[in-house]
Design a protein around this nucleic acid. Structure first.
Lengths: 226, 226
DNA sequence: TTATACACGGAACAAATGTTCTATGTCAAG
DNA sequence: CTTGACATAGAACATTTGTTCCGTGTATAA
């Protein structure tokens, strides 16, 4: 019945009470006030349920801070770019197109529809420069540790087929059927390009240009931890 | 000059601080926090000025209630968010307090004033959860490669002296006089804690708790590339 | 000059408020 | 039946946080 949200009736009520109280008073309720409103007699139980709600992502608490909680932005509409005002936005939404892993080709932006439908992440504009052709991928697996990129990291990519010396690129190595993230160096006189891991302790690999499909340039990495 | 509003410079600053704080945290500041932010050393003076502002109609106070104040909807107002309630900022500014490197202790936030003065970076709120006690440091050197963190990366920290199992922490190892970033594990029955590099290929180290000064928890990493 | 309103600082205080700890009851899995 | 995760209650505790009171300095008006 309530399986929809995964929240108990009481927890839903707690959220409702916080919302109503905040709207009425302009600041959030204390745990005792929540208790009174919901009908919980013990402060520890209120705190317990608030922690549950926090773990499920419905609110955020600040330890030891009176009234230190806030609801996290609901799912509902969540987009209201109506800020406008003429200037360019300070923050941009980047479409999250899928995953990147060693053994699979990485998704690239194709249709506008796929960009519109995708989940998105938001970053400060100065993080990426121009948002043109920028998209995001989530890393799966440990295969990119040589690039100092961990399982779960989000990489910000600029879609392009070429690269300049020193660019960190995402590329498909055809004969190995593998995706890799490395710095690109083309050394005149050589027939192959050098792909250099970000980790200075690791050795480069050399591949023939014809064996390399450049998918884009890595312009940023974002890692979220606990 | 300020006769226009009938408010002193200090009072204008108080209003500004309340507005900014509320947008950042989702609840109003305490009088002590206002004092720190504005530069008023006595809580009674903050309270005094809040009462003045209330009498002039700029805000409303609730007696004996922690954080019991709210701004009265000003006319002037540069913002017309049209949304209605959610006055929460979607992005927050994080103070960049300096550098983190292997051989030096890392800067930690102390006064609220120092946070206000520092350079800052801006991130989406969902990147950090609560902005409370969060600050940023720029990595200098290759010493944190075992944590998959590169020279130049920005790490987002939450300042705290304790840690839970699995947290990635920044800590000072006293006898080595070194800063390190590792995952923290306390195994019951052992006298030392295990510090595990993010890179699964690398070995953990074990240190005695008394030899460890936890400086904070790493909650995010941001890397910008060409 | 003196008086008075205003603004500020510091310290002590009391109330508000979050946390921790122990105990109890339920329910499903083993 | 026993175990363990989950949810609850109550009380003691520690910290956070608003209030009060006394003293100081500085204007401006009488």
């Amino acid at each position: 019945m309530l399986a929809q949200t995964g929240l108990s009736k009481r927890q839903l009520r707690v959220l409702e009470v916080i919302r109503e109280y905040s709207e009425e008073y302009g600041y959030p309720p204390t745990i005792r006030e929540i208790g009174e409103l919901v009908g919980i007699t013990s402060t520890s139980v209120v705190s317990y349920n608030l922690n549950v709600l926090q773990n499920k992502g419905y609110l955020v608490r600040d330890r030891d801070i009176s009234r230190g909680l806030r609801l996290v932005d609901g799912l509902d509409d969540h987009e209201s770019p109506a800020d406008g005002e003429g200037e360019l936005a300070e923050f941009v939404s980047i479409p999250l197109l899928g995953a990147i892993a060693a053994g699979i080709p990485l998704p690239v932006p194709e249709s506008n529809a796929m960009l519109a439908d995708a989940e998105s992440i938001r970053v400060a504009r100065e993080m990426i420069g121009s948002p043109r052709d920028v998209y995001a991928l989530q890393v799966r697996g440990d295969s990119m540790i040589d690039a100092l990129i961990n399982d779960g990291d989000v990489v910000l990519m600029r879609h392009q087929q070429t690269a300049e010396n020193g660019d960190m690129i995402a590329a498909w190595i055809k004969d190995e059927k593998a995706t890799t993230l490395k710095r690109f160096y083309w050394e005149p006189g050589r027939t192959s390009v050098r792909l250099q891991p970000a980790n200075p302790l690791m050795d480069p690999i050399y591949v023939h240009p014809a064996n390399l499909d450049i998918q884009g340039k890595v312009i940023g990495v974002i890692r979220r931890l606990g």
